[in-house]
Design a protein around this nucleic acid. Sequence first.
DNA 1: CAATTACATTGATTCAGATCAATGTAAAAC
DNA 2: GTTTTACATTGATCTGAATCAATGTAATTG
Lengths: 230, 230
Amino acid sequence: MGKLLKTNCFACRSRSDIFNTLNDDQLQRIDCEKVSIYYKPGEVIFKQGTPCHSLVCITSGLVKSYIEHENSNDLIFSLTRPSNYLLMPGAFVDQRHHYSAVAVEETTACLFNIDIIVELMKANVSFASEFLRKASLQTVNLFHKISGLTQKHIYGRMADTILYLASSVYNNKAFELTISRQELADLSGMTKESAIRVLKKFKDEEIISLNGNYLEILNQSMLESINKNG
Amino acid sequence: MGKLLKTNCFACRSRSDIFNTLNDDQLQRIDCEKVSIYYKPGEVIFKQGTPCHSLVCITSGLVKSYIEHENSNDLIFSLTRPSNYLLMPGAFVDQRHHYSAVAVEETTACLFNIDIIVELMKANVSFASEFLRKASLQTVNLFHKISGLTQKHIYGRMADTILYLASSVYNNKAFELTISRQELADLSGMTKESAIRVLKKFKDEEIISLNGNYLEILNQSMLESINKNG
DNA sequence: CAATTACATTGATTCAGATCAATGTAAAAC
DNA sequence: GTTTTACATTGATCTGAATCAATGTAATTG
């Protein structure tokens, strides 16, 4: 599970902006300490319920973060691209992961021991407040997710997912999906069958075009309206 | 909306434990700066979408925190008792409240300007890390809430709510409800009518007793089992 | 290249829980 | 003490989305 890689924090193009607050000595410290790992699609980065040791920064690829349920579908609450890291609120509560993280595409990530991160937060106030800012952003996003899941119907939820993919994951109105229909469903809090039916409806109404995994938003404003009202 | 009260942080019996990390000078600072307010049941403490200026510490009473939806029911994600404060992730993101807070019982609260809180976090590492710990706990609780809302049926969700009320709100297996049936429903992510029907079923099955607003848990283990599996 | 395996699609059916519609109850206001 | 108003309860009906059941399609494997 994961192949070791050689990397350098100073030259890193996928460095998370929270590390910009560190001075050279501090950056040196995490550079020495870090472990860089390669994951194949489908490989587990960490699993819900397990002890939480490391801060994970994604340096290439795509990762899904999801809440696991015993006899029910997973709920993906976030897809993470390079320069972002996987937040671990459990690190400050019960030292357990409260969700699972799995590579969706080929992924590389740097792991930093959480004790060193805590140490740096104590030594560097800007680093700590940047960290709190990111943690708060995640919480705000969770409020948004709860809101969507409880208030909206499947059409609105899928519209939200498509807009999220275009704006935050593939950064384009047209993209080749690297996630499955099941994952599209898990992102939208519905079953695979419902996801397929909703996508078909959007296609029939020429809101999107979809051929295999190639998706293009044809009517953005309609999609936004469905997201808001449906 | 709210009557001014005279209080003292040093002698306060309802002081949040995050303030225990402060030295006397720092405590003096927040004591001088704070504003203490009385709220009647139903009064708004802050409203979703409005600018976020203050950290709110509850010193007596009970407060509901809920996500508002335009044409749909509210979703209460937390009830807050004294010694706890209302977290405001928006303060570090977009300076907006992402949920509303309303007094359920007669409530008093102390408001601290967020700038002073941020200043103290910079001056006092323990205070900052205690703050991050509380924020992380809230996030973990939100994961739990999402999980329950998407995975469980109404019986499991109401069982969760009753157990939450007994363990974290009224601190007793038997209690006089100070929240309405609608609020019970908003806590459990269902309609008022469904909440009433579920409560009736629990009563018929002698899992709880319920007379008016007096609720008693008769079969705790059954309730836990429904919470887990239903 | 046939066979296995994983993923995608479509239709038929079911059901949990919402909505709609009264009616009951009790506290507060005049 | 009657009226108003808010909250609680119950039953009937409806419906969105899940589940169940095939079948289709494409990629991988021996």
